[in-house]
């Protein structure tokens, strides 16, 4: 079928403001939006810039806004949209650097702030034991690929620069509910404020956007409940 793509274009060092450029391409319904972008770039307009790598929803490079929703371009098929016009824009709330490429540095800095690693003292000779039930608590959160679809979709992130945002909170959830982690208390203290979990007011946009189907809002609310219970 013939598709019309309207793509956000912007080179901040040249363009006074962003603009949209239209492309027409032939694509099958089973093709990925990323396949379409590649076809445009490779055969029509090499100047288009976007990130991509694994092309099957594992690396998290190609998060962008497609017809108004944050998603991975490699996980959305043409037939997922009931229209022949697809509008592609960079992730909102992130600073655009060129076309669909945004500045991810502040996002990864936020992730680093929550200390995304196990904090535990001496290890035994073999593995630390963990029951399957305890392991299961982390099961959905370990799906996170740091694509930032959730943070970009979050209305609070959009208004409040201080709010850590959903993805870092999922990373925190994963550690707070890891039975092996010994700094659960310190981790919760760090989040017990309006920039932490209390910034979240349950819009659920993060949960709707997550391409890995992580119940993001629920994770945040479980941290809130744990803080109320133990701090």
């Amino acid at each position: 079928m013939e598709l019309k793509f309207r793509i956000f274009r912007y080179d901040p060092q040249i363009d006074s403001q962003p603009y949209y450029r239209e492309y027409s391409i032939e694509a099958k319904g089973t093709e990925r939006v990323l396949d379409c972008l590649n076809r445009i770039k490779w055969t029509q307009d090499g100047s288009l810039s976007y990130r991509m790598s694994c092309a099957h929803g594992v690396c998290g490079s190609d998060a962008m806004r497609i017809n108004g929703k944050c998603a991975l371009a490699c996980q959305k098929l043409v037939k997922d949209f009931d229209t022949n016009e697809i509008i592609v824009e960079p992730l909102p709330s992130f600073k655009p650097l060129k076309d669909l490429i945004v500045d991810m540095t502040p996002f990864f800095d936020r992730v680093a702030e929550i200390r995304p690693y196990l904090l535990a003292s001496d290890a035994p000779e073999k593995e630390r034991l963990q029951s399957p039930e305890d392991r299961k608590k982390m099961d959905l959160a370990i799906r996170c690929i740091l694509c930032a679809c959730c943070s970009a979709s979050c209305p609070v992130v959009n208004e409040n620069d201080e709010f850590k945002g959903p993805a870092p909170l999922v990373q925190a959830f994963r550690r707070i509910f890891d039975s092996r982690d010994e700094q659960k208390h310190e981790r919760m203290v760090q989040l017990d404020n309006p920039s932490g979990v209390w910034g979240c007011v349950n819009h659920f946009e993060c949960t709707r956007a997550c391409p890995k189907e992580i119940p993001v809002t629920k994770c945040i609310n479980l941290i809130k409940a744990e803080i109320k219970k133990t701090l």
Partner: peptide
């Protein structure tokens, strides 16, 4: 090597007795 990854925090699935 695998025990080291577990010690670093890798979330391996577990057997009923809590091992990797």
């Amino acid at each position: 090597a695998v025990y080291e990854l577990e010690h670093m925090g890798a979330p391996f699935n577990r057997t009923p007795d809590g091992k990797i």
